[in-house]
């Protein structure tokens, strides 16, 4: 069963082709990484998956719902986190989580907030305004917000950007555990190759809006004859080398 299906997806802004006829699937319970440089089309693709951007053409199906016709049914079962989209900074962490708990119609909301606070170590900051938090704390709060409805599909846009290695590792560990215990499907856009290698079952390499390669991390490493995904990324980004095997 595919949790996400993307077919012939195109997004054009006037003369700019941001996403150029891409297609991929994400199996239920899997974690797929979208990799690519700035302007490769990762964020635009995620925004189209969330219904924030209307595709020029193509079709997106999430959890069996056609996003062009029935996006709200899918959105109730999805969630999203990005360091580039903020939470109201004058509200406390608890108030922010309550707002989104209501928006996602979460049952037993206080229990859910307490669970997330314990799991993500938010207890000390629950009643502090979101605007007064450090980058690491904000990331954990954003993650808590994205998990408030126990989503079946989680879209993460650079979830550990600007985090120190310790906090980044903590977030990645939490995501691994959440996926293992909940069976959640994760689509992850990231510049962090180590993160992608660690979390993702499949990697989709984007360049200038097109899918230029895909496979498991091991398959990509073998195909490009590299030791880590960062070199694969550079090979693709700089057109340095073609894949050594088909």
């Amino acid at each position: 069963m595919e949790a996400i299906q993307v077919e012939h997806l195109v997004k054009r802004y006037d003369s700019v082709l941001a996403v150029d006829d891409i297609g991929f699937t994400v199996p239920a319970g899997g974690t797929v990484g979208l990799l690519g440089g700035n302007g490769a089309g990762k964020t635009t693709t995620i925004a189209m998956l969330l219904g924030l951007i209307v595709p020029t053409s193509g079709r997106i199906t999430v959890l069996g719902h056609d996003m062009a016709k029935d996006r709200f049914a899918a959105l109730e079962r999805m969630n999203f986190s990005s360091p580039y989209v903020a939470l109201p900074h004058r509200l406390t962490v608890r108030e922010n989580l309550r707002v989104y708990g209501h928006l996602y119609n979460v049952a037993h909301l206080d229990d859910r907030i307490a669970t997330l606070a314990r799991d993500l170590d938010l207890g000390q900051i629950l009643d502090r305004p979101a605007g007064q938090l450090s980058a690491g704390q904000k990331t954990r709060v954003a993650l808590a917000k994205s998990l408030i409805n126990q989503p079946e599909v989680l879209l993460l846009d650079e979830p550990t950007a600007s985090l120190d290695p310790d906090t980044g590792d903590m977030v990645r560990t939490w995501l691994e555990q959440y996926r293992a215990q909940s069976g959640c499907t994760i689509l992850l856009a990231s510049h962090n190759m180590a993160e992608v290698e660690r979390l993702c079952h499949q990697v989709i390499m984007l360049k200038q809006g097109r899918v230029v390669d895909r496979g498991t991390p091991d398959e990509l490493l073998a195909r490009y004859g590299r030791q880590d995904l960062e070199d694969v990324f550079l090979d693709i980004a700089r057109d340095r080398r073609q894949a050594v095997a088909a």
Partner: peptide, 12 residues
Amino acid sequence: SRNLGHVFVSPL
């Protein structure tokens, strides 16, 4: 508060 991105991807 740059919150519209979250609001519009919720079921609201």
